[in-house]
Protein backbone atom coordinates (compact mmCIF):
# COMPACT_ATOMS: atom_id res chain seq x y z
CA UNK A 1 0.00 0.00 0.00
CA UNK A 2 2.83 2.36 0.79
CA UNK A 3 4.69 1.79 -2.51
CA UNK A 4 1.44 2.04 -4.46
CA UNK A 5 0.47 5.21 -2.63
CA UNK A 6 3.89 6.73 -3.31
CA UNK A 7 3.69 5.72 -6.96
CA UNK A 8 0.29 7.34 -7.50
CA UNK A 9 1.25 10.38 -5.49
CA UNK A 10 4.56 10.94 -7.28
CA UNK A 11 3.41 10.15 -10.81
CA UNK A 12 -0.23 11.22 -10.92
CA UNK A 13 -1.26 13.64 -8.18
CA UNK A 14 1.86 15.76 -7.78
CA UNK A 15 2.51 16.09 -11.57
CA UNK A 16 -1.10 17.15 -12.17
CA UNK A 17 -0.86 19.89 -9.55
CA UNK A 18 2.60 20.92 -10.74
CA UNK A 19 1.17 21.45 -14.26
CA UNK A 20 -0.47 24.60 -12.91
CA UNK A 21 2.90 25.86 -11.65
CA UNK A 22 4.84 24.83 -14.78
CA UNK A 23 2.32 26.72 -16.90
CA UNK A 24 3.29 29.97 -15.20
CA UNK A 25 7.00 29.69 -15.97
CA UNK A 26 8.91 31.30 -18.82
CA UNK A 27 9.91 28.69 -21.41
CA UNK A 28 11.23 26.75 -23.09
CA UNK A 29 12.19 24.46 -20.19
CA UNK A 30 10.61 24.11 -16.76
CA UNK A 31 13.38 25.94 -14.90
CA UNK A 32 12.59 29.55 -15.82
CA UNK A 33 11.16 32.31 -13.62
CA UNK A 34 7.46 32.69 -12.93
CA UNK A 35 6.07 35.20 -15.41
CA UNK A 36 2.75 33.87 -16.63
CA UNK A 37 3.62 34.95 -20.15
CA UNK A 38 2.38 31.73 -21.75
CA UNK A 39 -1.11 32.32 -20.38
CA UNK A 40 -1.03 35.80 -21.91
CA UNK A 41 0.09 34.38 -25.26
CA UNK A 42 -2.63 31.74 -25.24
CA UNK A 43 -5.26 34.31 -24.31
CA UNK A 44 -3.96 36.55 -27.09
CA UNK A 45 -4.72 34.00 -29.80
CA UNK A 46 -8.31 32.90 -29.23
CA UNK A 47 -8.76 32.19 -32.94
CA UNK A 48 -6.19 29.39 -32.64
CA UNK A 49 -6.41 28.05 -29.10
CA UNK A 50 -10.08 28.78 -28.48
CA UNK A 51 -11.14 27.35 -31.82
CA UNK A 52 -9.15 24.14 -31.34
CA UNK A 53 -10.37 23.75 -27.76
CA UNK A 54 -13.99 24.06 -28.92
CA UNK A 55 -13.33 21.60 -31.73
CA UNK A 56 -11.83 19.05 -29.32
CA UNK A 57 -14.81 19.31 -26.98
CA UNK A 58 -17.34 19.16 -29.83
CA UNK A 59 -15.59 16.17 -31.41
CA UNK A 60 -15.50 14.44 -28.03
CA UNK A 61 -19.21 15.07 -27.43
CA UNK A 62 -20.17 14.10 -30.97
CA UNK A 63 -18.19 10.86 -30.65
CA UNK A 64 -19.95 10.16 -27.34
CA UNK A 65 -23.41 10.74 -28.85
CA UNK A 66 -22.51 8.57 -31.83
CA UNK A 67 -21.34 5.73 -29.62
CA UNK A 68 -24.51 5.99 -27.50
CA UNK A 69 -26.69 5.81 -30.64
CA UNK A 70 -24.89 2.66 -31.80
CA UNK A 71 -24.24 1.06 -28.42
CA UNK A 72 -27.70 1.47 -26.89
CA UNK A 73 -29.54 -0.83 -29.33
CA UNK A 74 -26.53 -3.13 -29.32
CA UNK A 75 -26.64 -3.45 -25.54
CA UNK A 76 -30.40 -4.02 -25.65
CA UNK A 77 -30.07 -6.69 -28.33
CA UNK A 78 -27.30 -8.43 -26.38
CA UNK A 79 -29.17 -8.32 -23.10
CA UNK A 80 -32.69 -9.23 -24.29
CA UNK A 81 -32.39 -11.10 -27.56
CA UNK A 82 -29.25 -13.21 -27.31
CA UNK A 83 -28.78 -15.82 -24.65
CA UNK A 84 -26.32 -18.55 -25.47
CA UNK A 85 -23.85 -16.60 -27.59
CA UNK A 86 -23.93 -13.41 -25.55
CA UNK A 87 -20.35 -13.52 -24.29
CA UNK A 88 -19.18 -14.45 -27.77
CA UNK A 89 -20.84 -11.38 -29.31
CA UNK A 90 -19.53 -9.13 -26.54
CA UNK A 91 -16.03 -10.53 -26.97
CA UNK A 92 -16.21 -10.04 -30.74
CA UNK A 93 -17.07 -6.36 -30.27
CA UNK A 94 -14.18 -5.85 -27.86
CA UNK A 95 -11.37 -8.02 -29.23
CA UNK A 96 -10.05 -5.89 -32.12
CA UNK A 97 -9.59 -3.08 -29.60
CA UNK A 98 -7.28 -5.20 -27.48
CA UNK A 99 -4.51 -4.87 -30.04
CA UNK A 100 -2.77 -1.55 -30.49
CA UNK A 101 -5.12 1.33 -31.26
CA UNK A 102 -2.46 2.54 -33.69
CA UNK A 103 -3.21 -0.51 -35.84
CA UNK A 104 -6.90 0.40 -35.88
CA UNK A 105 -6.09 3.98 -36.79
CA UNK A 106 -3.93 2.66 -39.61
CA UNK A 107 -6.76 0.35 -40.75
CA UNK A 108 -9.17 3.29 -40.82
CA UNK A 109 -6.59 5.29 -42.76
CA UNK A 110 -6.46 2.56 -45.42
CA UNK A 111 -10.25 2.24 -45.48
CA UNK A 112 -11.05 5.91 -46.04
CA UNK A 113 -8.00 6.89 -48.12
CA UNK A 114 -8.74 8.49 -51.52
CA UNK A 115 -9.40 5.62 -53.90
CA UNK A 116 -9.68 3.27 -50.92
CA UNK A 117 -12.50 0.76 -50.43
CA UNK A 118 -14.97 3.05 -48.67
CA UNK A 119 -14.61 5.88 -51.18
CA UNK A 120 -14.83 3.42 -54.06
CA UNK A 121 -18.06 2.02 -52.62
CA UNK A 122 -19.53 5.47 -52.00
CA UNK A 123 -18.63 6.56 -55.53
CA UNK A 124 -20.15 3.35 -56.85
CA UNK A 125 -23.55 4.13 -55.37
CA UNK A 126 -23.28 7.78 -56.39
CA UNK A 127 -22.82 9.24 -52.91
CA UNK A 128 -19.37 10.63 -53.61
CA UNK A 129 -17.49 12.07 -56.54
CA UNK A 130 -14.34 10.25 -57.59
CA UNK A 131 -11.49 12.05 -55.86
CA UNK A 132 -13.54 12.92 -52.79
CA UNK A 133 -12.05 11.76 -49.53
CA UNK A 134 -12.84 11.72 -45.87
CA UNK A 135 -9.16 11.53 -45.02
CA UNK A 136 -7.65 14.66 -43.46
CA UNK A 137 -11.01 16.06 -42.38
CA UNK A 138 -12.61 16.38 -38.95
CA UNK A 139 -15.19 13.80 -40.05
CA UNK A 140 -12.44 11.22 -40.28
CA UNK A 141 -11.38 12.06 -36.72
CA UNK A 142 -14.98 11.82 -35.49
CA UNK A 143 -15.42 8.45 -37.19
CA UNK A 144 -12.17 7.19 -35.69
CA UNK A 145 -12.95 8.32 -32.14
CA UNK A 146 -16.42 6.78 -32.25
CA UNK A 147 -14.95 3.56 -33.63
CA UNK A 148 -12.21 3.38 -30.99
CA UNK A 149 -14.43 4.00 -27.97
CA UNK A 150 -17.53 2.07 -29.07
CA UNK A 151 -16.69 -1.04 -26.96
CA UNK A 152 -16.46 1.04 -23.76
CA UNK A 153 -19.94 2.45 -24.35
CA UNK A 154 -21.34 -0.98 -25.23
CA UNK A 155 -20.03 -2.35 -21.92
CA UNK A 156 -21.29 0.59 -19.86
CA UNK A 157 -24.77 0.44 -21.41
CA UNK A 158 -24.90 -3.36 -21.38
CA UNK A 159 -24.33 -3.31 -17.62
CA UNK A 160 -27.16 -0.77 -17.25
CA UNK A 161 -29.62 -2.56 -19.56
CA UNK A 162 -28.88 -5.91 -17.94
CA UNK A 163 -29.94 -4.53 -14.57
CA UNK A 164 -33.42 -3.52 -15.73
CA UNK A 165 -35.96 -5.85 -14.16
CA UNK A 166 -38.51 -7.25 -16.58
CA UNK A 167 -41.24 -6.96 -13.97
CA UNK A 168 -40.89 -3.18 -14.19
CA UNK A 169 -41.68 -3.38 -17.90
CA UNK A 170 -44.60 -5.71 -17.24
CA UNK A 171 -45.92 -3.29 -14.65
CA UNK A 172 -45.73 -0.42 -17.11
CA UNK A 173 -47.49 -2.51 -19.75
CA UNK A 174 -50.26 -3.57 -17.42
CA UNK A 175 -50.82 0.10 -16.62
CA UNK A 176 -51.40 0.71 -20.32
CA UNK A 177 -48.05 2.13 -21.41
CA UNK A 178 -47.31 1.62 -25.10
CA UNK A 179 -43.94 0.63 -26.49
CA UNK A 180 -42.77 4.23 -26.90
CA UNK A 181 -43.99 5.26 -23.47
CA UNK A 182 -42.26 2.30 -21.86
CA UNK A 183 -39.06 3.23 -23.64
CA UNK A 184 -39.25 6.94 -22.88
CA UNK A 185 -40.45 6.78 -19.29
CA UNK A 186 -39.11 3.47 -17.98
CA UNK A 187 -36.22 1.99 -19.92
CA UNK A 188 -34.39 5.14 -20.99
CA UNK A 189 -34.29 6.78 -17.52
CA UNK A 190 -33.03 3.50 -16.05
CA UNK A 191 -30.06 3.56 -18.42
CA UNK A 192 -29.10 7.17 -17.65
CA UNK A 193 -26.50 6.11 -15.03
CA UNK A 194 -24.98 3.79 -17.65
CA UNK A 195 -24.90 6.63 -20.17
CA UNK A 196 -23.17 8.83 -17.59
CA UNK A 197 -20.55 6.17 -16.89
CA UNK A 198 -20.10 5.80 -20.66
CA UNK A 199 -19.84 9.57 -21.03
CA UNK A 200 -16.91 9.71 -18.62
CA UNK A 201 -15.00 6.83 -20.19
CA UNK A 202 -15.65 7.92 -23.79
CA UNK A 203 -15.77 11.71 -23.73
CA UNK A 204 -12.67 12.23 -21.57
CA UNK A 205 -10.19 10.27 -23.70
CA UNK A 206 -11.89 11.37 -26.93
CA UNK A 207 -11.61 15.07 -26.09
CA UNK A 208 -8.00 14.50 -25.01
CA UNK A 209 -7.07 12.56 -28.14
CA UNK A 210 -4.17 13.61 -30.33
CA UNK A 211 -2.78 10.71 -32.42
CA UNK A 212 -6.08 10.12 -34.22
CA UNK A 213 -6.17 13.76 -35.28
CA UNK A 214 -2.47 13.77 -36.15
CA UNK A 215 -2.80 10.82 -38.53
CA UNK A 216 -6.32 11.21 -39.93
CA UNK A 217 -7.24 14.83 -39.33
CA UNK A 218 -4.85 16.96 -41.34
CA UNK A 219 -5.29 20.67 -40.65
CA UNK A 220 -9.08 20.49 -40.89
CA UNK A 221 -9.29 17.95 -38.09
CA UNK A 222 -6.50 19.25 -35.87
CA UNK A 223 -7.32 19.01 -32.17
CA UNK A 224 -6.23 20.79 -29.00
CA UNK A 225 -4.38 17.65 -27.93
CA UNK A 226 -2.39 17.62 -31.17
CA UNK A 227 -1.20 21.13 -30.38
CA UNK A 228 -0.23 20.13 -26.82
CA UNK A 229 1.81 17.18 -28.05
CA UNK A 230 3.60 19.34 -30.61
CA UNK A 231 4.49 21.90 -27.93
CA UNK A 232 6.41 19.11 -26.22
CA UNK A 233 7.71 16.99 -29.07
CA UNK A 234 8.52 19.64 -31.70
CA UNK A 235 8.31 23.23 -30.57
CA UNK A 236 9.74 22.47 -27.13
CA UNK A 237 7.73 25.02 -25.22
CA UNK A 238 7.03 23.07 -22.06
CA UNK A 239 5.28 25.79 -20.02
CA UNK A 240 2.81 26.33 -22.83
CA UNK A 241 2.14 22.58 -23.01
CA UNK A 242 1.51 22.64 -19.25
CA UNK A 243 -0.84 25.62 -19.44
CA UNK A 244 -2.74 24.07 -22.36
CA UNK A 245 -3.06 20.76 -20.48
CA UNK A 246 -4.58 22.61 -17.53
CA UNK A 247 -7.03 24.38 -19.84
CA UNK A 248 -8.05 21.12 -21.54
CA UNK A 249 -8.49 19.26 -18.27
CA UNK A 250 -10.58 22.03 -16.70
CA UNK A 251 -12.70 22.33 -19.85
CA UNK A 252 -13.34 18.57 -19.86
CA UNK A 253 -14.32 18.55 -16.18
CA UNK A 254 -16.61 21.58 -16.57
CA UNK A 255 -18.33 20.04 -19.58
CA UNK A 256 -18.77 16.70 -17.83
CA UNK A 257 -20.36 18.49 -14.88
CA UNK A 258 -22.64 20.44 -17.22
CA UNK A 259 -23.85 17.36 -19.08
CA UNK A 260 -24.42 15.57 -15.78
CA UNK A 261 -26.53 18.43 -14.45
CA UNK A 262 -28.51 18.59 -17.70
CA UNK A 263 -29.26 14.86 -17.64
CA UNK A 264 -30.25 15.12 -14.00
CA UNK A 265 -32.78 17.79 -14.91
CA UNK A 266 -34.01 15.92 -18.00
CA UNK A 267 -34.52 12.68 -16.07
CA UNK A 268 -35.53 13.70 -12.56
CA UNK A 269 -35.13 10.82 -10.19
CA UNK A 270 -33.05 8.73 -12.55
CA UNK A 271 -29.86 9.49 -10.66
CA UNK A 272 -31.24 9.50 -7.15
CA UNK A 273 -28.95 7.54 -4.87
CA UNK A 274 -26.83 6.70 -7.87
CA UNK A 275 -23.12 6.80 -8.29
Amino acid sequence: MLPSALLLLALVVVPLFLLVYFGLLAGPGVDGPVTGEEWARIAGQPDLYGRLLVRSLVLGLAATVLTILVAWPTAWALSRHVRRLRSLYLALVIIPHLTSSLLLIYAMYVLIAPGGPLMAALTGVGLAEPGDTLLFTRWAVLLMLAYLFLPFMVMALYAAVERIDDTVLDAARSLGAGAWQRFRHVVLPLTVPGMLAGLVIVFTPAAGAFVEARILGGTDGMMFGTLISEQVSRVNNQPRAAAMSVILLVAILVLLGGVRATLRRAFPGALRGGR
Partner: peptide
Protein backbone atom coordinates in the same frame (compact mmCIF):
# COMPACT_ATOMS: atom_id res chain seq x y z
CA UNK B 1 -9.60 8.77 -0.57
CA UNK B 2 -7.87 6.00 -2.48
CA UNK B 3 -10.96 5.26 -4.55
CA UNK B 4 -11.11 8.92 -5.54
CA UNK B 5 -7.39 8.85 -6.33
CA UNK B 6 -7.69 5.73 -8.49
CA UNK B 7 -10.72 7.00 -10.39
CA UNK B 8 -8.85 10.24 -11.06
CA UNK B 9 -5.87 8.32 -12.37
CA UNK B 10 -8.16 6.37 -14.69
CA UNK B 11 -10.17 9.28 -16.04
CA UNK B 12 -7.41 11.78 -16.83
CA UNK B 13 -6.57 11.64 -20.56
CA UNK B 14 -3.29 9.76 -21.06
CA UNK B 15 -1.89 12.66 -23.06
CA UNK B 16 -2.19 15.02 -20.10
CA UNK B 17 -0.81 12.43 -17.65
CA UNK B 18 2.15 11.74 -19.92
CA UNK B 19 2.93 15.44 -20.38
CA UNK B 20 2.66 16.04 -16.63
CA UNK B 21 5.00 13.13 -15.83
CA UNK B 22 7.54 14.22 -18.43
CA UNK B 23 7.61 17.82 -17.23
CA UNK B 24 8.15 16.71 -13.63
CA UNK B 25 10.95 14.40 -14.76
CA UNK B 26 12.50 17.28 -16.68
CA UNK B 27 12.21 19.60 -13.69
Amino acid sequence: LFTALLTTAITIPWLILAVAMLLVANA
